[in-house]
Design a protein around this nucleic acid. Structure first.
Lengths: 152, 152
DNA sequence: ATTAACTAATTACCTGATGCAACTATTCCA
DNA sequence: TGGAATAGTTGCATCAGGTAATTAGTTAAT
């Protein structure tokens, strides 16, 4: 490792136009998400984590999960298979529709999910600890806006 | 699609303890990054995009890129191969060390990168357009803090 | 009531990204 | 100068992803 990287171009001179805030915010979120994923030690694969999170909100059918996660039905079927094999979720038949498969989280799955979230929260909490009170207030104020962007 | 999902648990009752802000901020960034990736139409694969972005900051060796992207040397070698084949980067020998390969972005690569960034910026800009002046100011104020978290 | 059309999930098969191990070429150092 | 270390590539296996085909169950039309 000898070559030094300049940091990627954020806003200002290299990126004029109406996109300053959009670009910078997008990149900041991307990098935070990326580092959080890379730097928290986690044994659950991202696609498994996504499904586990959804199922933790309540039982769901395989098709619903596929739609939410934007993957094909076969892919979701296999992801579910892996999570079942790990003991983190359970398959059961839908009593009102024999074609459908209802997926439910297990206690073990809940535990693993909590562990994983804790690891990732700890990464973020460690970052927050280095910030001033004013910085934290700025984040706190922006948070509802970020959540609206995330879910709009 | 029949089963309705409750939104995933953010902060408050279900997640007590010292992690409120860390959890919520982490999830918001994760979801924004995720939606941005899914919902902007882009022909460049994520791992290619990452490398292209780095190389746009200046020439780099394969090993440097592997380290930055946290990927093995063979994987980076193949990613570089794909980008070279697409005409977006070029390989050249390091004049000071015959073992090393220096990767440089091409004009075509720069163009493709700009297009991709534009698509993603547009997604974010569309979100920002729905916000109030006060919301935008809150984001603007939080941005430097987010960038510090992203790069700390 | 029976059959045709549709839907949900899975299986089969292929592609592509990844890592480890092995290999080649080059450089460094003793 | 020759052995150790380093940079990159190739071989092989693994795993997530997609499309096509299959199976099982539901709905609708006659």
């Amino acid at each position: 490792m000898t070559t030094a990287y300049p940091s990627a171009p954020l806003g200002s001179p290299e990126n004029p136009g109406p996109f300053h805030l959009a670009t910078d915010l997008r990149l900041a979120c991307l990098r935070i998400a990326r580092r959080n994923r890379f730097e928290s030690v986690v044994e659950v694969a991202p696609h498994q984590m996504a499904v586990l999170s959804r199922v933790a909100c309540g039982p769901a059918s395989a098709g619903d999960l596929a739609e939410w996660e934007r993957v094909s039905a076969p892919t979701m079927s296999r992801t579910i298979g892996g999570l079942v094999e790990a003991g983190w979720i359970e398959r059961s038949a839908d009593p009102t529709d024999g074609r459908r498969v209802i997926v439910t989280i297990t206690d073990e799955g809940r535990e693993r999910l909590a562990e994983t979230r804790r690891a990732r929260d700890e990464w973020m909490a460690a970052r927050l600890e280095t910030l001033s009170e004013a910085d934290l207030e700025a984040l706190q104020a922006a948070l509802p806006v970020l959540e609206r962007i995330a879910t709009s």
